[in-house]
């Protein structure tokens, strides 16, 4: 039992990272209806920028955080301005394919910068384990988990109570209607990409806290995409719940099934879950069901 709980807790910690990555994707989808494959790169670059200031320049934690946020937000803004704005009015699939072109180019830049090496963030959070009746939780991961929960609350509040959030929700509903109500849709797009850049930077820093920065890091974006789709692309709460669940399934599944099949459950669990969810509920567990007309 203790063993099971230990695996579950570790899984939940990893799951909160997936949820954080998925949050950025959901944010972008909610108002622009673009599914961003490039989000994994934003996450990876967020981690890399943070490393540059912390490990490279040796700045203290709080000082390094701000330029990392700004740079990642600028990268998000640049993606929106240069690549996605010309595609407004084109089929949505074109925008999806565009994000994958961005993914590939940025992957090239990322690999070029790392040159096959790995970068490790210096320890900027308190070390040690919190032991609770036999279950140990690393404190730095626990902090990441709390940050994830806080961030979800904050973003939901922004969406619900601020004027900007209202504009974003209106834009998500219908671009043209929002425009005739006096909302500048293009500005909303820029804000949303800046916001998603900051969320990506937080996700990247939280991820780099538990693993090294190496060339496979951007592929966490695909895990985030799985979570976002399973949870329903327009549901923040869905991203949180499914993200935690996916971490749980991966870790517990790996612990109990790996000896039976010879390892590697972790790599495939997410995809199996995605296929299952898509077959049973194509619009995700918490997503809005759309009815199509000719």
């Amino acid at each position: 039992m203790i063993e099971f709980l230990q695996h579950s807790i570790t899984g939940l910690m990893i799951g909160s990272l997936y949820a954080l990555v998925a949050a950025g994707i959901v944010l972008v989808y909610k108002s622009t209806h673009v599914v961003s494959l490039a989000h994994g790169q934003l996450v990876a670059f967020g981690a890399l920028f943070f490393w540059l200031f912390l490990g490279g320049l040796g700045l203290p934690f709080w000082v390094g955080l701000i330029p990392a946020f700004i740079l990642t937000a600028l990268l998000g803004l640049a993606i929106e301005r240069v690549a996605l704005r010309p595609l407004i009015g084109q089929p949505l699939l074109a925008a999806f394919l565009m994000t994958f072109a961005i993914f590939i180019s940025l992957e090239g830049v990322f690999v070029l910068y790392l040159k096959g090496e790995t970068r490790t963030l210096p320890h900027f959070l308190p070390e040690g384990n919190l032991v609770l009746s036999g279950i140990s939780v690393p404190i730095n991961q626990l902090i990441g988990f709390c940050v994830a929960l806080l961030l979800f609350g904050l973003v939901s509040l922004i969406f619900k109570y601020t004027k900007l959030g209202l504009g974003m929700r209106a834009t998500a509903e219908d671009h043209r209607l929002a425009q005739s109500a006096g909302i500048v849709v293009k500005n909303i797009f820029s804000y949303i990409w800046i916001l998603s850049g900051v969320v990506a930077a937080i996700a990247g820093i939280a991820t780099a806290n538990v693993m090294d920065i190496y060339y496979m890091l951007p592929y966490i974006g695909i895990n985030g995409l799985i979570v976002a789709i399973c949870g329903g692309l327009d549901s923040l709460i869905g991203a949180l719940i499914v993200g935690l669940l996916l971490g749980l399934v991966e870790n517990v599944g790996a612990a109990y099934l790996d000896p039976l099949v010879g390892g590697g459950i972790k790599d495939v669990a997410g995809y199996a879950v995605l296929l299952l969810v898509l077959l049973i509920r194509p619009y995700g567990l918490f997503g809005l069901v759309k009815i199509e007309r000719i």
């Binding site: 690549a83 074109a94 590939i104 090239g108 830049v109 690999v111």
Partner: peptide, 21 residues
């Protein structure tokens, strides 16, 4: 070569999506 190839490929695709879909 490998990473420059990726960059060139991604850029070419982006250019085509914008200018000649």
């Amino acid at each position: 070569a490998a990473s420059l190839g990726l960059i060139a490929f991604g850029l070419a695709m982006a250019v085509f999506l914008v200018f000649e879909p």
